[in-house]
Design a binder for these strands. Structure first.
Lengths: 234, 234
DNA sequence: CGTCAGCTTGATTACTTTCAATTGTTGTGG
DNA sequence: CCACAACAATTGAAAGTAATCAAGCTGACG
């Protein structure tokens, strides 16, 4: 209960990038009245693949991975969410169960918006539905590119690309070179669709070649340019 | 010019599945006034990746593949369109260049709807934008599933899956067992993200095992159940 | 009926996974 | 605070899968 008090009101939310943030004051007020903020600990699940999509989630802060199980229980990470992102809206919009599981990578605070309230706002707001369409097209484009990458690139290229994705999503720590996300080797493997061992070997190569520096779980990017060249962008 | 006369008016179009078809009569009339039908020969390109998205296309009839070039000019087929499908709406909606190339696999008749007219109808029609959102979410779901498939399945599983996709998309000829699409081995390889040789070898295995029967370009499905089991669905 | 594109097969090579064994790290309860 | 348990990272060796390379075949079409 006390945790919820930490969440600012939508109208004074410091995030500005989410589709919700762009709403008019009175529409935000509608959502404000009914939304609930919640604290999630690292490793906690926000929602699970296959369950009913009753809420849209708006990330106040934190880091989230979206995963799906493949064959033999092998996980695949296919997207991340962070501060200001909207989560689960796709399933809510299409009236289907959640299509993935969302798991918190670092402690997060996330607001839940009940599906009805969400629809309510869409119905009266043409520009929100356009915004959502934009989000969807962006995700779709990303997914298709990712598909081609996995299909045609080597493990080395995919690991380089996973690192670039992490940089683009979570950025650096204040030192401007340490990746600002705590992530395991096997999670990196799950982004690049390879095995943990191959991920380790490849990272180790990058390390030996001086492109990155590995210090336990900390990943320091020494040579972003070289790294990008290794992704073999089209 | 004469070709265009072949295209029925939107209000009497026999297709019923497209988002356009579901519009009200007067909205269809608006589109009818401005749309243009065109005939495309096998192999012809409807639009090309990277060019301006000025039209939404509505497939009156025919079969289309959506492709993207990967590294070293290797093509990847990532979706098909057929009778009644909408094409290119995603790029139009998000105001971006086409994100893929669309190529006609068998002679087709396709209507072009100028982008402004399309937006015009969306703006006045909340339910169309919801329909489009549904389409997008469906495509996105498909793309994500495809990603996991490519990432985690063997070539054999992927080829089986490609066949299933072809069946689901284009169905059978009247004999109820011959695949109703003319497709090359290398195109099948491009669906399954593998090489032509591997595709051939795998098809040949299925043939020897009696799951399918290859007769030149004709692909006859003998044992759909077995084939489905070979896809190793999750 | 010749040509060109598509199809097929075999042999070799390269890349990645798998398996196994070991070391390192972290969080927890006594 | 230590010790232990559980999890994470690392490395080497072997096995497997699929890509590549090379060559010959087949069939459709002008």
């Amino acid at each position: 209960m006390k945790k919820e008090i930490l969440i600012p009101n939508c109208n004074s939310c410091p995030n500005s990038n989410s589709a919700i943030c762009k709403l008019k004051t009175d529409e935000k007020e509608k959502i404000e009245q009914i939304k609930k903020g919640q604290f999630y600990k690292k490793g906690q699940q926000i929602f699970e693949l296959g369950t009913n999509a009753n809420f849209v989630f708006c990330v106040y802060n934190g880091k989230i991975k979206l995963t799906k199980l493949g064959k033999e229980g092998k996980e695949q990470i296919f997207r991340f969410s962070k501060k200001g992102d909207l989560l689960g809206y796709r399933s809510v919009l299409s009236n289907e169960p959640y299509n993935a599981s969302a798991v918190v990578m670092e402690d997060s605070i996330i607001c839940q918006i009940p599906r009805d309230a969400f629809f309510n706002v869409i119905e009266s707001n043409y520009s929100l539905s356009l915004d959502l369409i934009q989000l969807l097209t962006k995700d779709l484009k990303g997914a298709e590119q990712h598909l081609i990458d996995v299909a045609q690139k080597t493990v080395r290229e995919r690991i380089a690309e996973a690192l670039i994705t992490l940089i683009n999503t979570f950025g650096f720590k204040p030192d401007n070179k340490t990746l600002n996300i705590k992530i395991t080797r096997s999670e990196i493997a799950e982004i690049a669709s390879t095995t943990t061992e191959s991920a380790i070997r490849t990272l180790s190569n990058f390390n030996n070649e001086g492109l990155i520096h590995l210090d336990g779980k900390r990943i320091i990017i020494n040579d972003l340019i070289q790294l990008q060249q290794n992704t073999n962008l089209l």
